[in-house]
């Protein structure tokens, strides 16, 4: 028995030593929650080298998953990268920290086009990170017609040749646009029509995927896929991707989206988080980041440094007439449950 007690004492001592050891360290760790493949991870090391702040980096697959993590009462994150409509919801729920712009002088590098947007007037809570469109990535060896309309995703010629996005707003949004409705509709009849369209389309769909769409399309597994423009940049790259692939935004318009950086209200390290945001807005950092992930940067100082293969590329920098036809997602409040039910019905079919 004595031996056991001795063992226990040793154990407790060892544990408390470990905890105090961790506690004594001056290093602040910020918890960053991001999408997969959405930052050049070498930049995280560079940030730690420059500031001494450590980054604990985690990833999520969809906006909705991020929202669940941020709404949870035990939210541990200091920095997150949600899209426009999620930011709108987080602001409405009073879950975001009001950013101290004095700590982010590099915000001057951001193009005014991306500031003061409707989901966060005056950018009180968020700083632009990346932006882009939603469109159709297609393999030119399998699709011999111009891709100009969402209807091509319902063409029986492409049976088992279509990847859809496993994401509620994106996939239902595509069906709404095909039917000619707003992607922010609050009309149950419109949702019912979109649901019917997606159920009709389901037999043609090869799979509902997330990030793995990129790799599958590069491998030539299917002819058509819904992707974000930034992923398309990566896929059409002749070296890392597949030169047979091309990207089109339908003539009738699409979804224009913005992913901004936010700090949850529960964060204990807001100053360090602001230092991280300021770091991301640095021209050189933003350039390295956008080149690495392929998504379009809202940073005009970085744009000035970028090669023409980016700035003149219609996937990376779509012309204004296309953007004018695009619509931004808005938070739907409780009406999102109608979307959720429709999506459940589609997936469960």
């Amino acid at each position: 028995m004595k031996k056991k007690i001795a063992l226990l004492v040793v154990l407790v001592m060892a544990l408390s030593f470990c905890f105090s050891g961790c506690g004594n360290s001056d290093k602040v760790v910020i918890n960053v929650l991001n999408w997969g493949d959405y930052i050049d991870e070498e930049l995280l090391d560079q940030f730690t080298e420059e500031t001494g702040i450590e980054v604990n980096y985690q990833t999520m697959a969809t906006n909705e998953e991020m929202l669940v993590k941020l709404e949870a009462s035990d939210c541990i994150y200091d920095v997150c990268f949600p899209s426009d409509y999620i930011i709108e919801k987080l602001i409405a729920k009073d879950l975001l920290h009001e950013i101290n712009k004095d700590n982010i002088p590099n915000i001057a590098n951001i193009d005014e086009r991306f500031l003061d947007l409707s989901f966060d007037p005056g950018n009180k809570y968020s700083v632009p990170y990346m932006w882009g469109t939603v469109g159709i990535l297609y393999n030119t060896t399998m699709v011999n017609e111009p891709v100009v309309s969402w209807d091509i995703l319902w063409d029986e010629k492409y049976d088992q040749q279509i990847f859809m996005y496993d994401s509620i707003r994106d996939s239902i949004g595509v069906a709404l646009m095909k039917e000619g409705y707003s992607i922010n509709t609050r009309d149950e009849a419109h949702i019912a029509a979109a649901e019917a369209a997606l159920i009709e389309q389901k037999p043609l769909v090869l799979a509902y995927l997330g990030d793995s769409i990129k790799e599958s399309m590069i491998n030539g597994d299917a002819a058509l896929a819904i992707v974000y423009s930034g992923d398309a940049m990566w896929c059409v790259d002749p070296e890392e991707g597949n030169p047979d692939l091309d990207y089109a935004v339908p003539e009738t318009g699409s979804n224009l989206w913005f992913d901004n950086v936010i700090i949850p209200k529960s964060s204990q390290h807001t100053e360090e988080a602001e230092a991280f945001i300021n770091f991301l807005c640095d021209a050189e950092v933003a350039k390295a980041n956008t080149e690495y992930i392929g998504y379009s940067t809202p940073n005009k100082a970085a744009m000035a440094l970028l090669d023409e293969s980016y700035t003149e590329n219609p996937i990376y920098n779509p012309p204004q007439e296309i953007l004018d036809k695009c619509e931004i997602f808005h938070d739907l409040g409780d009406f999102i449950n109608v979307y959720n039910d429709a999506w459940n019905n589609i997936k469960g079919q």
Partner: peptide, 20 residues
């Protein structure tokens, strides 16, 4: 490929994407 939803997927979906 997300085309054949099972009961486990349904439960996961309730917690992961639909939230509280």
């Amino acid at each position: 490929g997300g085309k054949f939803m099972l009961y486990g997927d349904l439960i996961e979906n309730q917690f992961i994407t639909l939230g509280m």
